[in-house]
Design a protein around this nucleic acid. Structure first.
Length: 360
RNA sequence: AGGGCCAUGAUGCAACGGUAGCAUGAGGGUCUCCAAAACCCUUCAUUCAGGUUCAAAUCCUGAUGGCCCUG
């Protein structure tokens, strides 16, 4: 019986800790659903919660991954494997499609070994991509087309999309209709589909194979969907913010500045998607100031304090956005982590669910 | 107690005498490929009292508050 457990929720609620605890009890392994922790060498800023002394255990061959740019395997925490961390270099343009393909392979692999896959993370779209069928995410990007479209204004993009598929445009919500990134993606999808119809069977085959794997796995997921369990961890906002404060401060002490220094030295620039994420982009100001002139110690301290404050605020905003996303998901069973002993309740719930599945 | 400058949302700014706008903040939301991203929506203001004018944030007078120069 193939089952999936999901642990989601905003940042700083202790998802990984709980995941590890449950994995130990129920023969599980963790699959990280975190869009930033996939980058190698970005550990402190993304808050990777792993045993640093244990190297990545690489499983490319076992899983049959051909892409040379992807390193697929697991890190671990307290002996529990955590998959989908440290997959690519920071200058690799990673995306949900690739994540879903890899994640589903791993789910299959774990099932074949009679393990319980536990998806743990805060990236809502990534979780959705593993637990549902989203065919469009496998349609590859078209660099040439994007280059052209990126020069256009929102109004021009709207016209372009209406021209190629008016229904598609009509069905977009009001926010996406004004979002250049989404408009470009929509045009790209429509054009890809037209192309495939017209000529290129090669593309179609790549797409089909991804999609079929997807459906194959999803069939198993669907069969037991009623038994799927999604745990959501949260806390009152003030509580959450205080935990975020502590986490951010710990990361500064752990050496975020040194980590970024190394990344920059290795040639990874501020324009990369990876470097423009939370925990990194805030520091650009600091490094710019350093490169322009030598700054005095007190001035330095002042700047760091200012950046830390911005970082905290950005984390608050992020947590709120995550809550907005997860609020819509009706099947989540929520737990308030500020309540003492909530772990026991969760573990008991998982236990009941797990044994029921085992017998059923 | 002489002279000059200024007064606009929570903050920083803008508006030839003619629809009070922008950025930031705050709150809410969207999302099937950059998702720790990108985008959308909402919220809040002309210091006060008079005057001129069809019309005043804008011009005039006074009050109050702030900043600067000179004793």
């Amino acid at each position: 019986m193939n089952k999936l457990l999901v642990i989601c929720g905003p940042t700083a609620t202790g998802k990984t800790n709980l995941g590890v605890q449950i994995a130990k009890k129920f023969n599980g392994e963790i699959i990280s659903a975190d869009s930033r922790q996939v980058y190698i060498g970005m550990d402190i800023g993304t808050g990777k919660d792993i045993n640093e002394n244990v190297e990545l255990s690489i499983k490319n061959q076992e899983l049959g991954v051909e892409n040379q740019n992807l390193t697929i395997g697991f890190r671990e925490k307290e002996g529990i494997p955590i998959w989908l961390i440290d997959i690519v270099e920071p200058d690799y343009v990673f995306n949900v499609g690739e994540y879903a393909r890899l994640g589903k392979m791993i789910i299959n692999y774990l099932w074949s070994k009679n393990k319980l896959p536990i998806i743990v993370g805060g990236t809502g779209l990534y979780i959705k991509a593993l637990t549902q069928v989203l065919p469009n995410i496998y349609i590859p990007p078209n660099a040439d087309l994007r280059k052209k479209l990126e020069l256009m204004t929102v109004a021009e993009l709207q016209v372009e999309l209406k021209k190629s598929n008016n229904d598609w445009f009509t069905h977009l919500n009001i926010s996406d209709k004004k979002n250049p990134r989404r408009l470009i993606r929509a045009i790209e999808i429509v054009s890809w589909k037209k192309n495939v119809m017209l000529n290129s069977f090669q593309h179609l085959n790549i797409y089909k194979s991804s999609f079929q794997t997807d459906q194959g796995i999803l069939k198993s997921i669907r069969q037991a969907q009623d038994d799927n369990l999604t745990i959501g961890l949260t806390a009152p906002l003030n509580d959450l913010f205080r935990r975020i404060d502590a986490r951010v401060e710990a990361r500064v002490k752990a050496g975020i500045i040194a980590e970024i220094t190394t990344l920059l030295k290795n040639g990874f620039g501020w324009d990369l998607a990876s470097m423009s994420g939370l925990g990194y982009k805030e520091w650009q100001e600091y490094f710019k100031a350093l490169s322009v002139k030598r700054i005095a110690f007190s001035e330095n301290e002042e700047l760091i304090q200012k950046i830390v404050a911005t970082w905290k605020k950005d984390e608050y905003d992020y947590a709120k956005r995550q809550l907005t996303w997860f609020k819509k998901e009706k099947h989540i069973q929520w737990f308030d982590t500020s309540q003492n002993g909530f772990e026991n309740v969760v573990v008991q719930l998982v236990g009941e669910w797990y044994t029921k599945v085992k017998q059923g």
